[in-house]
Amino acid sequence: MHKVAPITKLALTVFVTIWAILLQSLPALALLITCQIIILMLARVGIVIYKGIASLFIFAAVLAGIQYFISNDMILSAVTASKMVAMTLVFFILLTTTRMQDLSTALVVQCRIPYEYAFMFTAALRFIPDFLAETKAIQEAQACRGYSPQGNLIRRFLSYMAIIKPLVLKAVTRSETMALSLELRGFGSRKLRSFGNKITLNTRDYALLISMATFTSYLIIH
């Protein structure tokens, strides 16, 4: 999966989302989810990703539970949760098997998205692990000052302000520094820019794109 062109994986993301919307049967959705997990296993992703997938399944189960509580329809709840899992798993495939710079290049060169927007998208994705690390560091700093969330939900939320406020302030400072640093390196000064990485499509990519388009057409017709 790592060798597949980024544009093909972007197309896969779109197609899987369409399939998840079109498919209404639980076995079909289960098959789609299984196939995606097999793809992730073949791509040899790290243990952290599997932990993320486990959390996704727990979240889906909670959502299904809430929907069952509201609608009293077990099948509908399971189908909705499965759709959500299928649509999210494909992003795991995209993000764990594609380098950010390749994704950015594909968006600009092949999807004709302005570089500023593509950069914004990849920068936001890159920001997530930093954001999580910063949250952990702030939690530790406040824990050393006696921070220990206890009591009811409102009390816990209020005490969590000790984490949120410094986190937001740090994020604002960081984005300001990043904007300045980008500007100082000529970001957005020219319409044309060059890319060092190659993201050309080969026979395998064309075959995958045709197969995915054919399958989608089949689903729409039937």
Partner: peptide, 15 residues
């Protein structure tokens, strides 16, 4: 309660 810890980066705790 027993040990005060001062982190390298003050901005991580000031709010």
């Amino acid at each position: 309660r027993h040990v005060g810890y001062v982190f390298q980066n003050p901005d991580r705790q000031i709010f």
